[in-house]
Design a protein around this nucleic acid. Structure first.
Length: 507
RNA sequence: GGGCCGUUAGCUCAGUCGGUAGAGCAACUGGCUUUUAACCAGUGGGUCGCAGGUUCGAGUCCUGCACGGCUCACCA
């Protein structure tokens, strides 16, 4: 920790406070109210009624401002959510407590006991009869007017960010409300919330590079999970018909405004449902979450306005490519049905493709470039190539496509769902195709999970499942452009990468 | 990994053509018994991210590095 003239001055103040006979870091404070409770209960109370009611309170908080005026003082303090003013007069306080006041600094915690009143300018205040010292802030808080703007400091010292910027606090309060609303939605529909392993012996269930660690006692590698999918489906095999899990996934890949190495995912599975049922369910889920956490069904995200009014647009991947083609002569859907046509389309847009990639990857690439950034209003994209979907059931009319959708909002992928593949033999063939791609050098192809195939062989009822990226949903509903602004402690490089500071390397 | 931009007091930011390092808030001293971005008078505070280079002289120009931001690539 850095020491400077400020910290030294504050340490002297703390020593002076101790010399006055106050405990330096006392335990607890018996309070009658929080600041927020007082402001909520009495904020609109007229002054004369307050006086008549003679409300006495004991309330703690962090000091935000001190106006010392000779023999009287005002202290504004906060519980993090609301602010309240204390009025102290030399005549009305024990001498020691008046001396204590002069050793208080911005950022300190105090408790005040006294009677509520309104000043002549009308501000609700506590007329303090007892001042209690609670905690010294050795490091001064950020500037009270300009806040903390330095983005790096805001992420590295989120505590200081939260002290200084109440809009940041509001984002994380809303994040909690969104997740609560999701839980209520699924609980009310008879879904069981479950917890499946975070450490997996095989990193499967998604196409992504994993983080690897080592279990010492078992002397084996373990992977931080990239997806809970295969475990949740094992639970469907086991007889739970509706399950959901909200938890972290870990992917060892690049960082960006939309990617953090650990991110929060909702996954849910419902027996006897199809991906079409889940489109309806997803509309219901998100409209309900928006209704409970936003002022209306229309939100502002950056430059755009997004309406969650149902029904939402539904397009096949091929239709989306045609609809958002950048020039006036898009390819036809029939043209996009085979490799040659997709190659012609890629060539027209001058999108280079690695030679080993097949039809599915190329169609997906075309979609990502042409359509994805333009899917601002909630849009379901259906009919994904089978090659891109090793865990999804094929469409009844064409085995080259699967019964799958992704939901796009604000140009971001927010959900991914499909009718689950429950044929163990077909699942094995799909895994083997992935292994072949892995052998060709695609280190993100999905590894084969033998026990998962065995589970399917016990019989998994027809099932549909879905994943929803919670961080991106929170970004949309709180109008934040970076995923780091909806994650309390986003990943950054260490600020001082000294060798001593790094943990010893595991053998 | 590439490109562009940034890093100056505790915080927010200026700093012109290369010529003694600036402001507001915060801090310190004094004054002030209903202030509210309190006010009045005064004072102190700098490894200009780090390391080199050019120059009589570098916050400013050049090179390298670190960290961060945006973006592209990668990646659901």
């Amino acid at each position: 920790m850095e020491e400077n003239e400020y910290t030294q001055q504050r340490r002297r103040n703390l020593a002076d406070i101790a010399a006055l006979g106050f405990p330096s870091y006392p335990a607890g404070y018996r309070r009658t109210h929080s600041v927020s409770q007082i402001v909520t209960a009495y904020g609109a109370y007229p002054g004369d009624e307050l006086e008549a009611a003679a409300v006495t309170v004991r309330v703690p908080g962090r000091i935000q401002a001190i106006n010392l005026m000779g023999k009287a003082a005002f202290i504004r303090f906060t519980d993090g959510a609301a602010m309240l003013q204390a009025y102290l007069r030399k005549n009305d306080l024990p001498e020691q407590e008046w001396l204590l006041l002069k050793r208080l600094d911005l950022g300190d915690f105090i408790g005040v006991a006294g009677r509520l009143f309104r000043t002549k300018t009308g501000e609700l205040s506590v007329h303090v009869e007892q001042l209690t010292f609670l905690t010294k802030a050795i490091i001064p808080p950020p500037d009270k007017h300009y806040g903390l703007h330095d983005i790096e400091l805001r992420y590295r010292r989120r505590y200081a960010d939260l002290i200084a910027n109440c809009d940041v606090r509001a984002v994380f309060v809303k994040r909690a409300q969104i997740i609560q609303a999701i839980r209520r939605f699924f609980d009310a529909r008879g879904y069981l919330e479950v917890e499946t392993p975070m450490l997996h012996p095989i990193a499967s269930g998604a196409t992504a590079r994993p983080f690897v660690t080592h279990h010492n006692a078992l002397d084996m590698p373990l992977y931080a999970r990239i997806a809970p999918e295969l475990y949740l489906k094992r639970l469907i095999v086991g007889g739970f018909e509706k399950v959901y899990e909200i938890n972290r996934n870990f992917r060892n890949e690049g960082l960006s405004t939309r990617h953090n190495p650990e991110f929060t995912m909702l996954e849910f599975y419902e027996a006897y449902a199809t991906y079409e049922d889940l489109m309806t369910l997803t509309e219901e889920l998100l409209t309900e979450v928006v209704a409970q956490t936003c002022a209306s069904d229309t939100i502002t995200y950056g430059e755009v306005t997004i309406s969650f009014a149902r029904p939402w647009r539904r397009l096949t991947m091929q239709e989306a490519i045609v609809a958002h083609w950048p020039t006036a002569d898009p390819p036809t859907i029939a043209e996009l049905d085979d490799l040659a046509g997709v190659n012609r389309a890629l060539e027209r847009l001058k999108l280079p493709m690695a030679p080993h990639l097949g039809y599915g990857q190329r169609l997906g690439e075309l979609f990502e470039h042409v359509a994805e950034p333009n899917l601002i209003q909630p849009t379901f994209i259906t009919r994904f190539p089978t090659e891109l979907s090793p865990l999804a059931r094929h469409a009844d009319d064409n085995p080259n496509f699967v019964d799958r959708f992704e939901l796009f909002i604000g140009g971001m992928e927010c959900a991914n769902a499909f009718t689950e593949l429950n044929d163990p033999d077909e699942q094995r063939r799909r895994f083997e195709q992935q292994l072949a791609e892995r052998a060709r050098g695609d280190d993100e192809a999905m590894p084969l999970d033998e026990d998962f195939i065995r589970a399917l062989a016990y019989g998994m009822p027809p099932t549909a499942g879905e994943g929803v990226g919670i961080d991106r949903l929170v970004m949309l509903l709180t109008n934040q452009r970076s995923i780091r602004d909806v994650i309390l402690f986003p990943h950054l490089r260490p600020e001082n990468a000294t060798p001593e500071a790094l943990p010893a390397t595991a053998p």
